[in-house]
Nucleic acid binder design. Structure first.
Lengths: 240, 240
DNA sequence: ACCGCACTGCGTACGGTGTACGTAACTACG
DNA sequence: CGTAGTTACGTACACCGTACGCAGTGCGGT
């Protein structure tokens, strides 16, 4: 049966090779790697079917033999970099392990700044996503809670990390397409914000800015946020 | 000075009317409203400069007199719907007030399913965003904490709500562009997930699925998540 | 052994996108 | 009253995702 018909399918359920005809010139991993290479170097917007095909060294439409829609290419990319997630023998201290998971996810996203934008619950079924989830659950074995709660914990922590890193990197990624630099952009926005605050319409924001004018330490902010989320699920949270 | 030169600017700092030449036919609000109308009815992908111009009843390129880049149009849209945020006299119970804020934000995003995808820290300077932030800070007046902590609180809660609603709506928005229905998509993915779990490679996930096979109550999950975040910032969190 | 068919590879084409640029009309200021 | 700065907008370009058609290839069934 030809690929042409529009039928719902998960790309992972689709076999790479069906047996008939000439053998494919590329593997799914080749394609994902090519797309990731482009995204890392030139940003997510540069990941077009044409560019990926050129990077692979084949015609544009040949790509569609491997990837029915561009969306599936994105799914392949997310799964490919998810393979970079390290998995270790749980230490028995779930807080320490989850802290490490969070930090590692953040590092992963900093290596691949396009990742947060591509994160979708629909991609949670990919092989490496499943492995990652199982590993998180293993780390949470010492935590006495039903699996439902653990899953909500993982979702909340992951969501927080994703949101956080996205906010951290969004401007940097966005600015790539802009004709001016990130610093210029920020300077202009800060200046505008200052003028608004000076209007007196936002007394508490003015106080907030007056309170702490020093440069914010993103590292510390991230670690505090992680600790908050861990606290929220710690039965012994009484002991600060 | 003509708009043509690429100069960093915040759209809010740009005056709507400069005085010379023929008076503009539309206001910024007209344009934002038209874009929001299209996004609500046909999804975010339908919001193109051409469509918005047609909705307004003017030529495509005329739009660029009001909005230098499409990105700015998105900023206008986010600000426009942010005006729907209700602001009330803080009750004195910050938990109750923040709960209400979270619920309201969720409702706002359900009315405008494209909103989560457009949320960006760069849009935090718009007039309505500033009003919203000031209101949140007012609600947090009873909480004894430095403004830095309060801002981190608001960011974490907002991020959680955004992530949550996005996960809730992402598939629905995404499926609009797909040639099959959301149910078909889900059925196929669940079936694949089942086959993976049946492989035995993911014992904890298997256990998680065995533990609670009932349909998940999204409402309850959301409320629990909100409560977790509130707990994380509650000095009296010892009293469950 | 050989035919047929499913598959790969790929060029072409279509309808869409954001937006640079040039031109014409208009109005408030010097 | 000129003229400079603005609005309005048609045209054009480069790029996008992808439907379709055709040529070549090699395995499965007979």
């Amino acid at each position: 049966m030809a690929v042409r018909g529009a039928v719902p399918e998960v790309i992972w359920a689709r076999p790479e090779r069906t047996g008939r005809g000439p053998k494919p010139a590329y593997t799914r991993d080749d394609i994902a790697a090519a797309a990731v290479r482009i995204a890392d170097a030139q940003g997510l917007d540069a990941v077009s079917m044409r560019h990926v095909a050129a990077e692979l060294g084949c015609g544009t439409m040949s790509l569609y033999n491997y990837v029915p829609r561009k969306e599936d290419l994105h799914e392949l990319m997310v799964d490919a970099v998810s393979a970079e997630h390290a998995r270790w023998e749980p230490s028995g201290d779930w807080r320490a392990d989850m802290r490490r998971v969070a930090g590692q996810t953040r590092e992963l996203m900093r290596r691949h700044p396009w990742l947060p934008r591509l994160m979708s619950p629909a991609y949670g079924f990919s092989p490496n996503a499943l492995r990652y989830l199982e590993h998180c659950l293993a780390c949470l074995d010492p935590l006495e809670a039903p699996y439902g709660t653990k899953l909500e914990f993982i979702a909340l922590l992951n969501g927080m990390v994703t949101t956080y890193v996205r906010n951290e990197l969004d401007t940097a990624e966005r600015v790539r397409a802009l004709p001016w630099s990130e610093d210029e952009e920020n300077a202009v926005r800060i200046a505008y914000l200052g003028s608004r605050i000076a209007s007196g319409a936002y007394p508490r924001m003015a106080a907030a800015f007056a309170e702490d004018a020093g440069p914010i330490d993103l590292e510390a902010v991230f670690e505090r946020a992680v600790e908050r989320v861990l606290d929220a699920f710690d039965p012994e949270r009484g002991a600060r």
